[in-house]
């Protein structure tokens, strides 16, 4: 199987009607992925359970960074993502999705944060006065 793969590798990713020629990974890639995931899961849990970092903002960023790295590890070692799978369409769909996800997440937080800070009940009389005058 591996010999057959290297033989066809310089062409492009898939060389068969069936999926057995797709990159399924090997025991080695699964093992690497698993060990990396365990490490990348254990560290954030340990950080939070031992309250290692006291600053909430810093801790949040560190946790998000670990999550981002682990997502990439899963994508590469478990989902076997690469720029060539399905003639590059997998990657295109993924990039598009990430774009939409970032817009939805960042946009929601941005809009709702400003709604919360600018529409506080304490500001309401001022706004009413403005509309009345």
């Amino acid at each position: 199987m591996s010999g057959h793969d290297t033989h066809n590798d310089h062409g492009h990713g898939h060389d068969s009607h069936y999926h057995d020629a797709h990159d399924h990974g090997s025991l080695k890639t699964y093992a690497i992925g698993f060990i990396l995931s365990v490490i990348l899961t254990a560290i954030p849990f340990w950080l939070v359970m031992n309250k290692t970092i006291t600053n909430t903002g810093t801790m949040g960023l560190v946790l998000l960074a670990f999550a981002a790295v682990q997502v990439v590890v899963h994508m590469v070692y478990f989902l076997h993502m690469n720029a060539k799978s399905e003639g590059g369409w997998n990657m295109m769909a993924l990039i598009f999705t990430i774009m939409i996800v970032v817009i939805a997440m960042a946009g929601s937080l941005w809009v709702m944060y400003h709604m919360n800070t600018n529409m506080m009940p304490s500001m309401m009389p001022e706004m009413n006065m403005q509309s009345a005058s």
Binding site: N8, H12, H14, Y18, H19, E86, G87
Partner: peptide
């Protein structure tokens, strides 16, 4: 091999 090098449409 030569066929699939030219063919860039997703097979599967």
């Amino acid at each position: 091999r030569s066929y699939f090098v030219r063919e860039h449409h997703p097979e599967n």
